[in-house]
Amino acid sequence: MKPVVMPPHRFPHFYRGGDRITELRGVPGPHERSPEEWLASTTTRFGEAPAGLSVLPDGRLLRDAVAAQPEAWLGPEHLATFGADTGVLVKLLDAGERLPVHVHPDRAWAGRHLGCRYGKTEAWYVVAADEGAQVHLGFRHDVPRAVLAERVERQEAAALLDVMHARTVSAGDGILVPGGWPHAIGAGILVVEAQEPTDFSILLEWTGFDLDGPAEGHLGLGFDTALGAVDVRGHAPDEVDALVGPRRLERSDTVLPVLPRAADDYFRMHVARPAAAVTVPAGFAVVVTLAGTGEVTGDGAASPLSRGDVLAVPYGAGDWTLRGDVEAVVCRPALAAPQGPS
C-alpha cells in the first residue's frame, strides 16, 4: 500500500478563519467560518456524525477502509494495542479570531461521564503566527468552582482570560495542552493540531460566537456536571514552560520531536526536514507538508510531494522515506493504549 494524498476536507464551524489553510492547501473553504480541516480523520464531530470523517480519493470513507483492512492500515502491533482505531486525530486550525475559552476532558473524566477510554488531550505545532499573537493556557491561581460557575453563567470572558497564563507564540513552537486545562488560541495563528480521537469540548465562553452555549457547550451533561472536567488549580509559570517542546529548525535524517515527552502517552508529533532522506518506521501516520518539494517513497514506489499535500500513510507502506527540500509534520498515535472503558 502506498501513502495516500488526501483530498481537502473542510466544513463550517462556529468561529472565523481559514484563509491560511486556503493558501496552504490551495482550495478555498466552503464558508467564511471554515477555520479547520480534519486530516485523515476517522473521528466524527460530537453529535453530528458523519461530519468529520475523511474521504479517500476513491470516494470511500477512510474509516470504512480501515475497518475493511485494519492490519494493512494499522499493523498487527497497533491492532493488538488499540484495536481497529487509528488512535489520533490531526487538524489544521487557522484562527481568524480568538477562540472562546474552553476545556477538553481528561481520560479519567471522559471514562466516568462519557464511557470513553479517550479524553481530548491535544497539542499545537505553530505553523504561522502574527507578531505578538498569543495563546491562553491554564489558570495562574486556583479558581473556586463556584466562582468559575458564576463567571461562566455571567459570560465574564475578561475575568476568565485575566486569570489565565498568556504566551506569545511563533512558528516552530510545539505546545502540549493536557486534558482539563482551560485554553484559547488567539487570532492570527495557524497550527497543526494533534489530539486524542474525540470531539469533546466544554465551553466556558460563547457570547459573540455563532453558538448557543447553554445548549451546545456541556456535552449534553449540563454545566453542573461538565464544569467538573475543568482543572481549576493554579499552575506556576514553570509548569506551563514544561508543556512547550524543543524548537527543531535544523535539517536531519531523522524525525525530530517538537513536544515534551509527556505527549508520547497520547500521540507523537515530529518534524521532518531531510538533510538527505528521512525514513520513518512502518505504522499509521498523518503527514502535513508545510514547505518545499520532494518525494515520498513507500511500498517500493516514489511519488512527488509538495507544499500543502496531506498524506495518510498506512502500515502497509512499510518503512517510508521523505526526500527533497521539504518540511513536514508527522503525526502518529501513541505506542501504548489508554486504559479505561472501550
Rank of each mutant, 00 (worst) to 15 (best):
V191A: 08
A285M: 03
P314Q: 09
E239H: 08
A157F: 06
P70Y: 15
G220T: 02
A302K: 08
P70T: 14
P333G: 11
V127G: 12
P338N: 00
M269R: 02
C331H: 03
R63C: 02
P214C: 04
A272I: 07
F82V: 10
E196V: 00
V4N: 04
R16Q: 09
A262W: 02
G292K: 11
E71R: 12
A123S: 12
V103G: 08
T44Y: 05
P30C: 08
A128S: 15
A291E: 15
K2W: 00
M164H: 01
G228I: 08
A291M: 09
G208P: 03
V147D: 14
L148Y: 08
D241R: 13
V127W: 07
V230Q: 11
G340L: 01
V232Q: 13
V147N: 07
R268W: 05
L56W: 04
P274L: 02
T121S: 09
D253T: 15
M6A: 05
G318S: 06
A95E: 14
L160Y: 06
R307H: 04
F223W: 08
L24Y: 12
V169F: 14
P237K: 11
A40F: 02
A262S: 13
P274E: 09
T207C: 05
V27G: 00
S342H: 11
D173F: 11
S34K: 00
P8V: 13
A272E: 07
F267K: 08
E327P: 00
D58P: 10
L61K: 14
T198K: 03
W73T: 02
L256F: 10
G172Y: 14
L311M: 01
E196G: 01
V126M: 11
R167T: 10
L61V: 02
G59I: 12
R268H: 07
G340Q: 03
G217R: 00
P12H: 12
R33V: 03
G174V: 01
G17Y: 12
H9R: 11
P35C: 14
L204D: 06
W73R: 04
P35R: 06
V192K: 13
P304Y: 15
G308R: 08
R332Y: 01
L221P: 01
S342Q: 09
G220R: 01
E71K: 07
G18Y: 05
E131I: 04
A80I: 01
G188C: 09
V126E: 14
T22L: 03
V90L: 00
E32W: 03
G26I: 05
A263V: 00
T86D: 10
E205G: 03
S170T: 14
A108D: 15
A275P: 00
G52Q: 11
D85C: 02
W109A: 13
L322H: 07
R251W: 11
G172V: 11
A276E: 14
V101S: 09
D265V: 06
V101T: 10
D130M: 04
A272R: 08
D64R: 11
G186Y: 12
R154Y: 04
T86K: 15
R248I: 07
L335I: 11
S201E: 02
G29T: 03
G138E: 09
A184S: 15
P178Y: 02
S41A: 13
V88E: 05
D142L: 08
P100H: 09
